[in-house]
Nucleic acid binder design. Sequence first.
DNA 1: GGTAGACCTGGACGC
DNA 2: GCGTCCAGGTCTACC
Length: 326
Amino acid sequence: MPSRFTIPVPADFNLPRDACSYGYFLLFPNNWDPAESVFTRILDLKDGPATLRITQAKGAGAALRVDSGRTLSGVDRNTARDQITRMFRLDEDKAHADRFHGLDPRFKKSGRFRLMRSPTLFEDVIKTVTSCNVTWGSTILMNRRLCECFGRSGAFPTPQKLARTAPALLRGRCSVGYRDTRIVELAMLFSGKKVVTGIKKKELAPVDAAWLEDPATPDDQVFEALLELPGIGPYAAANIMQLLGRYSRLPLDTESVRHGKMVLGFRGSSAQIMKRVHKHFAPMEDQAFRSYWFELWTFYEAKHGPAWTWQRDSTGKMFTAAQLSK
DNA sequence: GGTAGACCTGGACGC
DNA sequence: GCGTCCAGGTCTACC
């Protein structure tokens, strides 16, 4: 039996704008339907996977309506509500907006400040690993296959499932290449296991997700802890920081170099341009990433139209530095 | 501390 | 259809 519930949102929350605010909205098992303005997401809940259809029929500020393909227990409904809240950052209120817009008023009119993320930290970490050293089209493919091959009914696979998976099988089915062992080791760490990692050649304690998510934990300690994880270098760690709601660091990559050259007019080697991009956004203090990201996003939208009109299988594959430089 | 090269895959390109 | 080259961060070895 289908079921329906609602989730209240902050007065400024706008589903098309805020759901389509970061590239992960294009990755499985997320699906945005531009024609209907419907965000569909499969969540692996206690009683099994559920396909959730999320809409905001009455516009910005109106409660989200969530339709499930099956009846949800009270426990599953609460878990779904928590995960959707995390995904759309519904806990970031006017104070967050005011802080960002005070430092960078360019985005006050559009109201942008929220960045879409995953329902769980584990999924954010794996999505980040699958976005490293690979073109965006391959990132889409890896996430699709992870869900199809190892997730229940197309949901994102759990840490427990991936922790039990042989790296070679992961590589063979999901085209993750050398990331295979890194993903399995990360899954073990998120499953509460100690890991003697072959990647970084040391014994690692299980990931304490609550400690990483706790705003009271200092940024520097979170960053250092992330760098310890297999497959996580400076770029990935900085990206996970913003996914954790810590916006002072910039995950700079080849795309940042392209942006530095094309939009900011910087010249020099890649390393020099990255240093200049860092310096350029330093005045944005604890909001540096938001300022950087929405500047990038504005460039993308100027090329391809508003993000809520993008199609995963066409527009969504255009986003690589090489493509955008053309 | 800085740097070169290996790690993989998909896609573009030339023949 | 096949071979070659390239894009894309992390990690290790070496200086």
